[in-house]
Simulated scan of single mutants.
Amino acid sequence: MTVTFKENPVTLKGTEVQKGEQAPDFTVLANDLSDVKLSDFNGKTRLISVVPSIDTGVCDEQTRRFNEEASKLDDVEIITISVDLPFAQRRWCAAAGVDNIQVTSDHRDLDFGMKYGVVIDELRLLARSIFIVDKNGTLQYKEVVPEVTNHPDYDQAIAAAKEMS
């Protein structure tokens, strides 16, 4: 898969996951530095929204959009992941009024990014992407946005999550 950042090709590191596979468990950090794992939400549909940095325009919009949609989705846990420090995420969430979703950090060891193949080697950021894991732990939806500065297909992801919940 070719991914670009500001139209320049970048290298994605990690293991690329495929639809239909068991979603790898991972550990990221909550804003209070506690561990958050995919398996913490077993039995629910999980929409994982991946952003390079929450403090940038498209990432801000993406996170706000899924925060709005969260209240309309039954039995779907939305987890946003970036490599921003948890302290910066907490500050951003408070300022933005984002409180319907889990905003987490993969800063510590890139566990999520490496297990899902979305670490941008040149920048130590995560490629913009969306993954949806069903209640049984199977990856049912995947979108890695080809140009990191572009938006994902929100409508398609939300429709897929609704279908699985």
Rank of each mutant, 00 (worst) to 15 (best):
V28P: 00
A88S: 15
K37V: 05
W92H: 03
D99R: 12
K115Y: 14
I79C: 02
G137N: 12
P24S: 11
D84K: 08
V83H: 01
E69S: 06
S39R: 12
A30F: 02
W92L: 00
G113P: 04
Q62S: 11
V58H: 08
K44L: 12
L73Y: 08
D25F: 05
G97V: 14
L125W: 07
R46S: 05
N31S: 14
S34M: 11
D134G: 09
T45Q: 07
R65H: 10
D75Q: 13
D121C: 05
S39H: 11
A96P: 02
D60H: 15
D99C: 08
D111Y: 00
N67A: 10
A127T: 05
V50E: 01
G57Y: 09
A96I: 05
D55Y: 06
A30I: 01
D121R: 13
F26K: 02
F41E: 05
R124E: 14
D25N: 14
W92Q: 00
T80Q: 07
R108P: 00
D109V: 05
K44T: 13
D121W: 06
D75M: 09
K37N: 12
F41K: 11
D75H: 12
I78P: 00
Q102F: 13
I130V: 15
D74I: 04
S53W: 12
P24Q: 11
R64G: 11
K115T: 08
R128K: 14
D106T: 06
D40A: 07
G57R: 10
A70C: 09
